[in-house]
Each structure stands twice: as C-alpha cells, then as structure tokens.
Nucleic acid binder design. Sequence first.
DNA 1: CGAATTTGACCTGCGC
DNA 2: GCGCAGGTCAAATTCG
Length: 215
Amino acid sequence: MNQGMFQGDEGLVTSSMGFQGHEPTSWGLSGNGYHGLFRAMNGLSAMAPPLMLDANGEGESGCNLFTVAQSNGAIGPAPLQKMKTSLWSLGEEEGLGCRRAASEDHLGASAIKMKKVKVRRKVREPRFCFKTMSDIDVLDDGYKWRKYGQKVVKNTQHPRSYYRCTQDNCRVKKRVERLAEDPRMVITTYEGRHVHSPSHDTENSPTSSHINFFG
DNA sequence: CGAATTTGACCTGCGC
DNA sequence: GCGCAGGTCAAATTCG
C-alpha cells in the first residue's frame, strides 16, 4: 500500500470506535499490541497529535503506524452494519490523498493569505488520517464541524469535502473523501489540535478518555 | 430567521 | 512563465 507505512498486526475492535455517542471505554480487541490504537482513537476525539499513539511504549511521535480494526457498532447517527477502520499517523511528508506534502504548507499559509502577509508557516499542524469503511461520510467524532468547501480532486469520482471546527478560535480542519479504488472507504484527515473538549463528550466518558492534551 | 451547506471564483504552489 | 491541481473564501441557497 502506501510507502512509509508499516502494516501492523490486524486485530478486531468489537465495540464502537472512538466516536462520540458510544461507549468510549468498551473496547474489545483481539490480538495484542493494539493499546496504541485505542489511545489513538481516543486521542482522535481530543485531536491528539500522532505522538499519542503510545501506550505500551509502542509507537512514537511521528512514527508511521498502520493498523486495522473492525467494528460492529453503530457509528454516528446512522447505524452501520459493519465498519472497518484503518488509522495511521502521518509523517512529515506522508499523506494519503495528499498529492504532495507542499500542499500542506499552502494549506497552512492560506489561513493568512487574505491579509496579504506572505509568511509561510513553518510549523506544520499535527495531522493524521484514518480510513473507514462506512456508508456515511462524516463520522461523529464528538466535535461540531462546518463544511467550508468541496472539491473534486483528480482521478477520483468522489469530491473531497473540507470541514472546519465550529468552535471559536479552534482552527482544526478535516478533509473527508472516498477512496478512488474503493468507494466504500472513507478517508478522514484531521489537521490541527482542538483547543477545547468535544462538544457532547460529557456523560459517556467515565474514564475521561477524551483528555485535553493542550493544556 | 439564523445557521449550515453549496458552489463558483479566486489564490497559491508546483511541475513542466 | 504557464497551466494545473488543491485549498479557501464568500455569496447564494437550503434547511431547521
């Protein structure tokens, strides 16, 4: 598959994924070495950087990680019969659906381009993406998103959607697109860190799995 | 009626 | 330098 990723052992997640509205702690898993995935999925809701992909000492900051999980749970508002999710962190130049890493620079700079300030952001926002076999495009990850654009990218018949966190002064963005080779697969790419907690992550998180990592 | 989405235009960077 | 491709803006439209 993608270069720069290593394919991890496969395992099964028999509960819902780390999206809101579901039991975040009732992870079921076969196989071992997947604690990192759990942390990652929880971190997902909290918009954790890739370095959160460590729990058992596996996975390090900036590492490339690829693992596969499967869920029978219902995700988001629409019940899914079956969901298959792959999660990986993105290295510096890594990106699925990203034609070139430089576009990320462009992405970062675009936020201020309207001010005619030609300062290229040196600091890349942490970003990672995961692949989900799902009928719905936008999974409920606990945050509120506003769509601000849609674009048909080359060599794909499905448009890519651009979302921004609706929270004030939270500049997290995500892109959602379907895999060209397999339209059943939804690729969600998160960029940035939330500066707040998930919008409806209050009662169903007894272990406070959605940690705010941003202090 | 306000919020969210849609969609075409525009901007920027990269490759040729 | 030009064209292409991706990302964003913002006015128009739709939705709740």
